[in-house]
Amino acid sequence: MRAGLVEVGSLVPFQLKRWDPQPCGEPRRPAEPEKSPLEFAQEMTDREQFEIFIPSETAAGQAVQDRIIQRLEARGFTDRDVFGIRLSLEEALVNAIKHGNGMDPSKSVRVCCQIDTETVVVEIEDEGDGFQPEEVPDPTAEENLERPCGRGIMLMRAFMTRVEYSDHGKCVTLEKRRSVEGE
């Protein structure tokens, strides 16, 4: 247990520095005092995270998708959750690789993923020029229904609990809180 605590402690500075799942400018969530240090430590050990840089190739996007999905399946996320998360990851990764980085082999995409018992949060950041998400035309508007593009962001918003763009559209944060079976 002692060793476990030491290990957990060593994770904290990394998370504070490298991981901020909350949008910029919003107050930090207050600490949850009802959790004992032991409970907190146990929760931390249930948490896993990784950060990788992938080349601007869709095959690399597929590989990282598979890696995340495998972890979610192992943790018993429902089939419906897994479906929505995979679809959202696909859309976000294709956007970053194709539209953000323009498939440029000299550019990479940063993927940071954090999974715990309740939630998965994935941050996907490209090296492109960014874009204004609110300027993407509504694909469900009558005049756009037959246009073959522009549906990715809409699908992400439908399937994820939270979708947020930051850094002028270069970074997207996808968050999904797990559903309870039968919901």
Partner: peptide
């Protein structure tokens, strides 16, 4: 088909046209 992305939807729209 178990998964279908928005890019695939685009192809279906073109096919329909």
């Amino acid at each position: 088909v178990e998964y279908l992305s928005s890019a695939a939807l685009g192809k279906l729209i073109t096919m329909d046209k």
